[in-house]
């Protein structure tokens, strides 16, 4: 199951990391899924997709819809070291990214909205009336 794969790779150890080591990326940081990490939840009246995009500015993200495919793409530029700087450790991901969602029928497309806060992109996909959960009265 997806959760247990993550538990093994991203351990909970609280060990001491020296500033000076780190030429090789410790395996516990390597994400088995293509960055950026994404969660999908159903909040009843809407679906929510969240993507971890630390260090990514709003202007660097593009969300496009092609039929029932919603693609979130962009580029993360890692913070740069100044000319007289020397890298000691590189663990964060950088470069182009792209994730695609297949939207179910019944999404109210006019209501799709997204916001980027604290390095997390939150895409709201509201459900049209027909697929919203509703109580059914018993006659």
């Amino acid at each position: 199951m997806l959760n247990s794969v993550f538990e093994n790779l991203l351990g909970l150890e609280r060990d001491l990391d020296s500033l000076f080591e780190g030429a090789v990326l410790p395996s516990r940081f390597i994400s088995p899924v293509s960055a950026p990490a994404m969660n999908l939840v159903d909040e009843g009246r809407e679906f929510i997709a969240t993507l971890e995009l630390p260090g990514v500015k709003k202007e660097a993200v593009k969300i496009t819809k092609n039929g029932n495919a919603l693609t979130i793409s962009g580029e993360r530029m890692r913070g740069s070291a100044p000319e007289n700087g020397k890298w000691l450790r590189n663990e964060s991901w950088e470069g182009n990214f792209s994730r695609t969602l297949e939207l179910p029928k019944g999404i109210d497309e006019s209501g799709i909205a997204a916001e980027l806060t604290n390095g997390v992109l939150r895409v709201v996909l509201p459900k049209a009336e027909a697929i919203k959960p509703r109580e059914i009265a018993i006659r």
């Binding site: 990391d17 630390p54 070291a81 700087g85 450790r89 390095g119």
Partner: peptide, 27 residues
């Protein structure tokens, strides 16, 4: 609850050490 190690980049200049720590979703 799961507390993970955040990915961190570090560089050094003659004057300082600079750490850039990924903390997405953190207030």
């Amino acid at each position: 609850r799961k507390f993970l190690l955040p990915a961190t980049d570090v560089y050094e200049t003659p004057e300082a050490y600079v750490l850039m720590i990924d903390l997405p979703g953190v207030e």
